[in-house]
């Protein structure tokens, strides 16, 4: 994955597609994301969209059938990591440094939840992410998140700089 940045548009597009393909393979192989039934909808250029079906096993409030905040956190975290992994300046692996989630309203029982994360800035060692999640009402988000993720760059020695 050590392809050089280039100003040749076609080659940059090819590299972007390559990054997205690798990120997709990695995200789709995550056991916990699979356990929650997550589906990668879109990925590329620092933006990821991942959805999660409603499942009675994930309910946090038995009276209302609302999904537990923890499951929404897991969706946000996965989506944030995916956004970092497909950013043109980031490389393969990442880990969450911190993640803050605001729960704006309960997700409606029975509806799929979709998160969209954007990796809006990358430094040599840190990637900054913003994310939002919706149920089937796309006009009012159910949750918003901000997070910082590690950027693990390969050095010639194979270690981290």
């Amino acid at each position: 994955m050590a392809a050089k940045m280039t100003d040749n548009g076609a080659s940059a597009d090819a590299r972007g597609a390559d990054i997205a393909r690798i990120a997709r393979q990695f995200i789709e192989a995550i056991p916990f994301s699979q356990a929650l039934g997550m589906r990668l909808e879109e990925i590329g250029d620092g933006v990821a969209v991942i959805s999660m079906p409603y499942d009675a096993a994930l309910v946090g409030d038995p009276r209302t059938g609302v999904i537990h905040g923890g499951a929404v956190s897991a969706l946000m975290d996965t989506c944030g990591g995916a956004a970092v992994m497909c950013h043109p300046e980031a490389l393969a692996a990442t880990a969450t440094i911190d993640l803050r989630i605001d729960y704006m309203r309960p997700a409606r029982a029975g509806e799929r939840i979709t998160a969209r994360a954007t990796c809006y800035h990358v430094t040599r060692s840190v990637a900054f992410v913003r994310a939002e999640a919706w149920d089937e009402d796309e006009t009012r988000p159910v949750a918003a998140a901000t997070g910082a993720f590690t950027v693990q760059r390969e050095t010639p020695q194979g270690g981290r700089p």
Binding site: A29, I30, P31, F32, S33, Q34, L75, D77, T78, A93
Partner: peptide, 14 residues
């Protein structure tokens, strides 16, 4: 099923 990174392995941040 709690794994988030199978390479390390590490449990999922979520």
């Amino acid at each position: 099923k709690l794994i988030g990174n199978p390479m390390l392995p590490a449990i999922h941040g979520g």
